[in-house]
Every structure is written in structure tokens, then in C-alpha cells.
Design a binder for these strands. Structure first.
Lengths: 213, 213
DNA sequence: TAGATTGTTAATCGATTAACAATC
DNA sequence: TAGATTGTTAATCGATTAACAATC
């Protein structure tokens, strides 16, 4: 792993590289130039070379990039396939959708615990895991906290649930609650605001309609 | 609406402004300074003033911003509350989660059609809408195409479904399929890669663990 | 070898931050 | 009026793009 700080802009593009390279590999392609990859992904060749160079020398002059090698390396950088233990907090529609998302498991994220408050989900099994009452959170997880918590609770409860998870020792939270949570240094968080992209889409649709008139 | 082009970076921050301002308004606050809003949102006061100024003079010197007014204006810019007609393509876990997401309806997006291929969802009702077979897509939608399509299909089918939707006359696609779709000029798309933020989280978690050693 | 294409430095561009006059 | 805080211009910073020598 590298010591020089890689910018967040580059990191956010890595999953896209992984996705496109996986697809090319499935299609049987062995190598690709920055030019070609760029035109597929809608990036410039220059940017692709700059991005990849943040992680060492992965290409070869006069040849390009070896697709399986580059894909594997980016997968490693992203921590794919590490069999991360995951706890799902909130088994509503979104929580269930995430738990059953196939890509989730394929990339090495394994749901080990599911918690909720409501009686209907509690006691049932989702994706093979028995849903437990949220009261048992500390009791169940403290001894051996999972690597990642997926937080899919209502907005009002998100921050206090996050605080409890952090107190238990969880250091990464993937938050789907419609309110950003704040975490201390040493804890990673990604606040996913599902509707944000819908609103951006709505903005652009309005712009398109305006252009017509 | 403004003629000067507003940068995509600004547009992507608008939903966040809307969310924070709504919360402040619900809490009964009447006004806020760029300083205070910035510290809550993790932005600089300067950036907030620059962003808001893209849309005209919305603040008042010596006073700050009127929260309900600013919220309403940003809502308008984002097209919130326009009663947009939506078709959902793919009624799997993610499609259903989106259809039943409460914020979705609150912001004025109304699901009018749901399509799928599999027999179990087809014929059933989800969120009060009967799921129809995807074969009926053109027949049902051509005469009066919905404003927005939510595409929640497998990766392999995403592009061809998008092409069909565009042929019908749909001009905005919110794509959850795990493959980016490409659209012609005059059509808006937001490709949502749900797992991208999980991979970014995973990257940061690895960095944190590395820092410990 | 010649052609292709990277790695890397330099130039450009755009976004963010700072500063301050305008004004409520 | 004095204090507060915006609107807006200028300065800075960082990210993207261009260029080209290195090299496979």
C-alpha cells in the first residue's frame, strides 16, 4: 500500500475501473490501452494514466495494460474479496435489498447479523440470517465486532445508532439513512443519499424541457 | 431559470442543501448565516455563498438566508413537487425498495407503472400498482410516456431496456443496473452504482487498518 | 528496428477559498 | 449608527489535460 496520499477524486473512480475491467475480462479481452479504456468509460487517456500511476507501474510502454492483472490489482486496492463481516442495522426495504444484492456477496462482503426493532422482521430469516432485536446489538457484537455496519434506519435514529456501533468498535459505516451521520477520526463512513441522484436527474430533466421551449 | 451554465459540482450539492434546510425548517429555525450552515454541512461559508449565488440573490446582507424561502427556491430548482410520472422497470429487491421509499413520494415522484419479466411479480400489486409484463412496455407507455423511468434490471438488459424507453419518448432515466447506460443527447441519465460507495468505504477501512500497524 | 503506448512533467483549466466593499 | 453578513472579485489550490521522452 502506498504512503503518498491518493486524492478522493481518484478513489471514487476506482470502482468504475474495476467494473469496466471486469466486464472486459469476462468478454475475454487480455489487454487495453488508456485510449481505448478512456473512450469506453468517458474519460481521457491522460486521466486514466494519471489515475493508475497513483498505485505504481501497472502498464507497459508500447503495449498498454494487462486487463486481468490491472483488475486484480484495483480489486486488491479496494479490498475486494477480503471476506468482510457485515452487520445490517434495519431490515426494511432498503436493508433487505442491500442484503440480497448479488454483487455484495460476490465482492466478499458477508452479512453475519441483522437487527431491527419491529416485530415482523425480528425473528424471521432474511438471506439466511435470523433478524435480532436491536436491544441485543451490544450483547451480540461487542466481543467480536464486525468489520462494517450497513445502517438502513430512519433518519431520526441514524446518528444514535452510529454512536452505538462506534462504541462497540465498528470502524466502517455504510449509511443509507436519509440523514448524514458524523463520525470521529479513525472511523470511515459513506453517507449514501439515495434520492440525491434522482434530484440531480430531475434538475437536468427540467433543463431539457426548458431548452425545448 | 438561469441561462449561465451552473457547474455539475454545484448541482450535486443542491440536494444536500435542500436536505439540511428542510431539517432546519422542521426544527423551527427561520434564518441562517452561510457560516453556520457551512459548519453544519462541512462546507466553507465562502462556498455556500458562491453556490447559492448561482441562482440569484437569495440572501440579505447583515441577516443571512431565510430558511423557508431558500429551501423552497432550491426545491423549485431541483424540480421537487412537480408530480412527475414515473415508470419502474424491474420489480426486484432494489426496484421495490425504491418504489416504497417514502421520500420518493414526498418529493413528488409518483410511480404509475411497474414492469417485470418474472411471473411472480407480474400480476401482483406493489405499492398499489399492478406489475405488468415487460412485453407491454411500448403498448402501455407510448401514447403518454412517463417523465422518468427507474431502471432496476440486471446489467445485461439495462442498455437495451434504456434504448426501448428512449424510443418510446422517455427523457430521464434513473439507472440502478450495475452497468452504466449510454444515452443520446437530449436524454438525462443518472447511473447509480450502489456498490461504488461500499468499495470506497472498504478502501478507507483498509487504510485505517494499515495506519494502525 | 519502427510503432505503439506508457510514465511523467508541464500547462491549463476549473473549483474552492480568501478578502473586502456593499448594504441590510 | 454600528455590527453583521452577504455578493462578488481576486487569489489559490487542486485536478485535468497536453506533451513528449522513455521504453517495450
Amino acid at each position: 500500500m502506498e504512503r503518498e496520499r491518493v486524492s478522493e477524486a481518484v478513489i471514487r473512480r476506482l470502482p468504475g475501473y474495476y467494473r469496466y475491467l471486469s466486464q472486459l475480462e469476462r468478454g475475454g479481452m487480455k489487454r487495453i490501452s488508456s485510449q481505448e479504456l478512456g473512450s469506453r468509460m468517458g474519460l481521457t487517456a491522460s486521466q486514466i494514466r494519471q489515475d493508475i500511476n497513483c498505485f505504481g507501474t501497472l502498464g507497459q510502454q508500447g503495449y498498454g495494460y494487462n486487463i486481468p492483472e490491472l483488475r486484480a490489482r484495483i480489486g486488491e486496492i479496494l479490498g475486494i474479496g477480503q471476506d468482510r463481516r457485515v452487520a445490517l442495522i434495519g431490515a426494511g426495504n432498503i436493508g433487505q435489498a442491500v442484503a440480497q444484492y448479488p454483487g455484495f456477496l460476490n465482492m466478499g462482503f458477508r452479512i453475519r447479523y441483522i437487527f431491527d426493532v419491529e416485530k415482523p422482521p425480528v425473528g424471521e430469516k432474511i438471506a439466511g440470517i435470523r433478524v435480532q432485536h436491536i436491544n441485543l446489538l451490544e450483547e451480540e457484537l461487542s466481543a467480536n465486532p464486525p468489520d462494517i455496519a450497513v445502517l438502513a434506519s430512519p433518519a431520526e435514529k441514524a446518528q444514535s445508532l452510529a454512536d452505538r456501533l462506534i462504541a462497540i468498535g465498528i470502524r466502517a459505516i455504510w449509511n443509507f439513512a436519509p440523514m448524514d451521520i458524523v463520525v470521529p477520526d479513525g472511523v470511515a463512513v459513506q453517507n449514501v443519499q439515495l434520492t440525491d441522484s434522482l434530484l440531480v436527474l430531475s434538475y437536468h430533466l427540467n433543463k431539457l424541457e426548458y431548452r425545448d421551449e
